[in-house]
Design a protein around this nucleic acid. Sequence first.
DNA 1: AATGAATGAGCCTTCATTCAT
DNA 2: AATGAATGAAGGCTCATTCAT
Lengths: 196, 196, 196, 196
Amino acid sequence: MPKIGMEPVRRKALIDATISAIGERGSLDVTMSEIAGRAGVSSALAHHYFGAKDELLFATMRHILTELNIDTRRALHAAGTARERVSSVVAVSFSDDQFQPEIIAAWLAFYVEAQKSSALRRLLKIYARRLHSNLMSGLAGILPRNEADRVAEATAALIDGLYIRRALKDGVPDAATAIALVEDYLETKLNGRSLP
Amino acid sequence: MPKIGMEPVRRKALIDATISAIGERGSLDVTMSEIAGRAGVSSALAHHYFGAKDELLFATMRHILTELNIDTRRALHAAGTARERVSSVVAVSFSDDQFQPEIIAAWLAFYVEAQKSSALRRLLKIYARRLHSNLMSGLAGILPRNEADRVAEATAALIDGLYIRRALKDGVPDAATAIALVEDYLETKLNGRSLP
Amino acid sequence: MPKIGMEPVRRKALIDATISAIGERGSLDVTMSEIAGRAGVSSALAHHYFGAKDELLFATMRHILTELNIDTRRALHAAGTARERVSSVVAVSFSDDQFQPEIIAAWLAFYVEAQKSSALRRLLKIYARRLHSNLMSGLAGILPRNEADRVAEATAALIDGLYIRRALKDGVPDAATAIALVEDYLETKLNGRSLP
Amino acid sequence: MPKIGMEPVRRKALIDATISAIGERGSLDVTMSEIAGRAGVSSALAHHYFGAKDELLFATMRHILTELNIDTRRALHAAGTARERVSSVVAVSFSDDQFQPEIIAAWLAFYVEAQKSSALRRLLKIYARRLHSNLMSGLAGILPRNEADRVAEATAALIDGLYIRRALKDGVPDAATAIALVEDYLETKLNGRSLP
DNA sequence: AATGAATGAGCCTTCATTCAT
DNA sequence: AATGAATGAAGGCTCATTCAT
């Protein structure tokens, strides 16, 4: 077997391993050895490719955000009406790819870490801004700007809130229930409304 | 004067120190020495009173929850109508005592830690249940049980979501805006409704 | 046995251990564990008292310099004439306490480390300045300022040079020979001279 | 073009890179990667040609010594009288090629490393012996053997001492001053002397 | 001839925890 | 009631070195 061009393979494996490790431990308190072990390589190699733990974590968060963004783009593209745009954004947030224990745990852990790391904070702010603007891309066609803004804000908070509650595990809303809750809110707010 | 009856004083000081340390660092990654230092005692003493770091953290979370509960009890007691009961629960969540950076950071950090510690998880579930039942104590007088349940669920998620978004700091909703968002949601859902 | 007031004891033990470790290895490439082990404590304790390896090394160098300075002070105090002052400075440099393998090796190693550490460099410069001024305290009474300065410079270089050559071990000048060489130089330069 | 006969080119490049790396860092604590990088090759290649770091360092020291020896040979060849021979040896030691920060730092670093490595120690002893015999090749024509030996010893120590002091940088003797100091010493010792 | 890939070993450092006083 | 003394255990990171290509 040729051993060339391994870099992208290893990077991907390490990021995946990071997600699963964080998911299992439920926090960023995972060792580089643990991560490297899951990826089937030595911890030295993880350092070789990412320089430091911080950077591996950062790359992982960025990866998650990128995936979310890709999914969202795709969903928005498939949406027809403004109303559908809004729903599709919500739907992606609770899709099987996103709303799974490991990703949720990672998400939460990164929120905490963001308190210390300005790089991570920046990343999460980008996510927040994107979510808002994605929601607005639909809401702006239905409600007056002002109101649309407020509804987008609330919807985003609702999504994050459902994520955090999901983290408590057992008993709490599954994806379907979560979506229903958000849609119910949207329905109430948008009911009978539509810009002329 | 003999130094007698210091225990409650030290416990309180250590818990306060824990909150402020967590608030400043933004995570539970604070050392026992750091906490003890803030409380003006040796780390050995912290162990003497709490046994282990876990237990100090646990006691701290319980303290925060207890405070929240006391505030809520008081607010509910002062509320007249069912509608007021709902609003008072929301108001307490965003009161000056609760919605401050240190407490928010601690809150978030505990959510993450709860993934590992079942004791903490239990505590947070109690909080979730209490919040739900407090909201229900008002909503049940206005909406049919089923619907009330759903609104309570959404309201709780909304509150938590606003907390988490506040953690990203700058620019994000202050207490007044946060309350307005929740109240707006409630208004829409309860508008014109009232059990006969 | 009471275990209080150990700090000065441990600091001393650790510094001594550092000197002997450096002396044996012949360089600063000694591990904290090695040093701590020689001092009969854990490496964690070494960090507890000195914070970091750098600081332990720095403290060690300072210790050596301080000892040298004390010895020199004492010798100068005992010296009668200006000529005797010069000789006493030289004598101390090659005294049993200073001119021993361990100290010489440490000395040399610190010179190298000084290239990287400005703190150490400062320390060694202080040593150089002190040596010069100590020599001058005698020479100034014998030669005109200009010439005295030059002789002091050469004497200092000679001393350092003999140290470095001693580091190569076996065969090379022992203390007596070293002193003889320096004194021979001084004799030639000072012969028949004395300020009126 | 086939890349043939690269060996000598690479060896030279690696040795030069080693000197400059050591000179910059001020110690032998340079990584193989750093050295290889400076030479524009991979660290694996450095191992390919030199086997191990030790050997690269050894080869580097030998290179420096060889250069010094060549320069000295040439200078001695050009010298007419015995007195000139002595001066030419001194002059080479402080020539632009030798008395430059990088070389001085390397020199010093190697002295330290020699404590551990007997191979290096042997090398430095050869240097010491050569320096002595080169000086003697002049002094023996002027002073009786005994005295000549002593003066050679002192001169060598003086040279090394001036090197070490130069390592402390700023303010300390430049080449001209260094030479003046040594020549002044020689002048005093040789003044009016000459073997019949 | 040359290198990317990979690792084992080791070091500094941190920290919760214990214990004697 | 309180603390200084002390440590074991563990983690991040570095680096010389090897190997397959």
